Computed example of a mutant assay.
Amino acid sequence: MKQNIRNLFKQEVLQKKKLPDSHREGFLEKLSASKKKRKRITMLYKYAAIFSILFSIGFVVTNLFSKENNATDTALEIQLREIEKTYLENIDKEWQSFIVLTKDEKLIKRYEDKLGELNEGYQEISSQYKIDKNNMIVIEALIENLKTRLQLLQDIQQHINLLNKEHENTTI
Rank of each mutant, 00 (worst) to 15 (best):
D113Y: 12
T86I: 06
E68L: 12
E94H: 14
L64K: 06
E84K: 07
T86K: 09
Q79E: 12
E94W: 13
K85D: 09
T74G: 06
L88G: 02
D92N: 15
L101H: 07
R81P: 00
S66P: 00
Y111A: 03
K85G: 07
N63A: 14
F65S: 04
R110W: 04
I83C: 03
S66Q: 13
K85A: 07
D92P: 00
D92I: 05
E112V: 01
L88A: 02
L107H: 02
F65C: 02
F59P: 00
I99H: 05
T74N: 13
I108P: 03
K93H: 07
E89C: 01
T102N: 15
K109H: 13
T62R: 09
V100I: 11
S97I: 07
K109P: 02
D92C: 02
D73F: 14
L115G: 01
I78Y: 13
A75E: 05
T62W: 15
E94C: 10
Q96R: 11
T72A: 11
E105K: 12
E112Q: 14
N70W: 11
F98P: 00
S97R: 09
K93C: 02
K103P: 00
Q79W: 07
T62H: 13
I99E: 14
L76F: 10
R110Q: 15
K67A: 14
R81K: 15
E82K: 12
S97F: 12
A75C: 01
S97N: 12
E94L: 15
L76G: 04
L64M: 09
N90Q: 14
K67Y: 14
E89L: 08
K67P: 01
V61S: 15
E82G: 03
E77D: 10
A75Y: 06
T86P: 02
D104G: 01
K114E: 15
N90C: 04
T74V: 04
D104C: 02
T62G: 15
D113R: 09
L64D: 03
T72D: 08
E77Y: 08
L107P: 00
N70E: 15
I91G: 02
K114N: 10
Y87R: 04
L101K: 12
T72I: 02
E112A: 06
L101V: 02
E68P: 01
L101W: 02
F59S: 13
N70T: 11
L88R: 13
Q79G: 04
V60G: 07
I91V: 10
S97A: 15
R110G: 00
K109L: 15
Q79R: 11
V61M: 13
L115W: 04
I99R: 07
W95N: 01
F59E: 01
V100G: 01
K85P: 01
Q79P: 01
L80Y: 04
R110V: 07
I99N: 10
K114T: 10
E84P: 03
F59Y: 11
R81A: 14
